[in-house]
């Protein structure tokens, strides 16, 4: 018909190369996972705790990334879902004597429901309404948590102190080591689920809505419903992170969850790389370690150093750490993608 000879040969080559890249990516991930497990026995005390927090923030930022990075809806108040997750976990552990691991699904469910309820009206209005609604939620929440009427549950200003879980089945691990491995396991599950979701039909629809909502709707995507469900899922991930955070820190209090937490998550999102699953890990590492680094550089003005480093990163890697790495990988893999003039066939330019 209209197929020119020679085209098929090129067609056949591409999946083959993709398969190699894909296998490379798997190996890369396995090495990363092995290193993460090995870290349990390399680090201890505060350093291991910091690594635990990197995992927890990575899950939280992953949640924010699903709604902001992939479906293009800005949330300035995701810290609120982190707080809700943390409190659900703390209250269930102290008031209802639930084991710590069983509080995670509960936190997930509660945050998904709250996310859906908030997203439904806010996303219908579109534009920056979601950003402002979530921001308002993040501002309001700490004061609600302090509110007298809820004090029996929330512990008011004092918050709730939790017990540190021990390693189960008599495993020869310290409580810190177990907490780290438990968080790592939850993190791996969260990232696999997110990757599946984002790679398939639903993930494509999310990105389509972000790139061109009118065209997405013409292709049969129910905009309001998709955006609301996406927001709910995003709240779910961040809520699970909050629950893990409560268990890891062994303490929740209203002032741990100020608006600043939401901003920190947003910073982690942008630094790591918007619309990149791996970016969430880089962003989390920045969020956890950068304050220490800034402090080391200047005891007098750590915040200024933090700000300058942040601006420098955004200036040199506008698409975040993940974006910069992807570009480097592309360069290493070679620029031959456009050799042979393949994409120019039948073109006018």
């Amino acid at each position: 018909m209209i197929t020119k000879p020679g085209l098929l040969a090129q067609t056949a080559r591409i999946p083959e190369r993709n398969a190699i890249v894909w296998r490379g990516a798997i190996v890369f991930k396995l090495i990363g996972l092995a290193a993460a497990i090995a870290a349990t026995f390399v680090f201890s005390g505060y350093h291991l705790f910091q690594l635990t927090m990197v995992i927890i923030y990575a899950i939280a930022i992953l949640g924010l990334n699903i709604v902001t990075g992939y479906s293009g809806q800005i949330s300035l108040g995701h810290g609120a879902f982190y707080a809700i997750g943390a409190y659900v976990s703390a209250i269930l552990m102290t008031q209802y004597n639930l084991p710590y691991w069983a509080t995670l699904p509960a936190a997930a469910l509660v945050c998904a429901i709250v996310g859906f309820a908030i997203g439904l009206p806010a996303l219908r209005l579109g534009g920056l309404y979601l950003a402002l609604t979530t921001f308002a939620l993040a501002i309001t929440l700490p004061q609600i948590l302090k509110y007298r009427a809820f004090e029996d549950w929330t512990g008011g200003v004092q918050g709730i102190v939790l017990a540190k879980p021990d390693a189960p089945f008599g495993l020869p691990l310290s409580a810190d080591q177990w907490l780290y491995l438990f968080s790592l396991a939850v993190g791996v599950v969260a990232f696999v689920l997110a990757r599946n979701l984002l790679a398939g039909r639903i993930g494509r629809a999310m990105r389509a809505v972000r790139d061109h909502p009118i065209a997405a709707e013409a292709m049969g995507v129910h905009l309001a419903l998709l955006k609301t469900k996406t927001f709910a899922v995003s709240a779910l991930f961040t809520g699970v992170a909050g629950a893990l955070g409560a268990i890891a820190v062994q303490y929740v209090a209203p002032d741990s969850f100020s608006v600043f937490l939401s901003i920190v998550l947003f910073v982690g999102l942008v630094v790591g790389g918007v619309a990149s699953v791996a970016g969430a890990v880089f962003g989390a590492a920045f969020v956890v370690y950068m304050p220490n680094v800034a402090e080391k550089i200047s005891k007098a003005a750590p915040d200024a150093i933090y700000g300058i480093i942040l601006i420098a990163i955004l200036f040199f890697a506008p698409s975040g750490v993940a974006g910069a790495l992807a570009r480097i990988a592309e360069r290493v893999r070679g620029k031959d993608r456009f050799k042979d003039g393949i994409p120019l066939q039948g073109g006018t330019r």
Partner: peptide
């Protein structure tokens, strides 16, 4: 992709 001669650029 075959019919519209887009197979070579499918991943672009």
């Amino acid at each position: 992709l075959e019919l519209l001669e887009l197979a070579a650029v499918a991943a672009e």
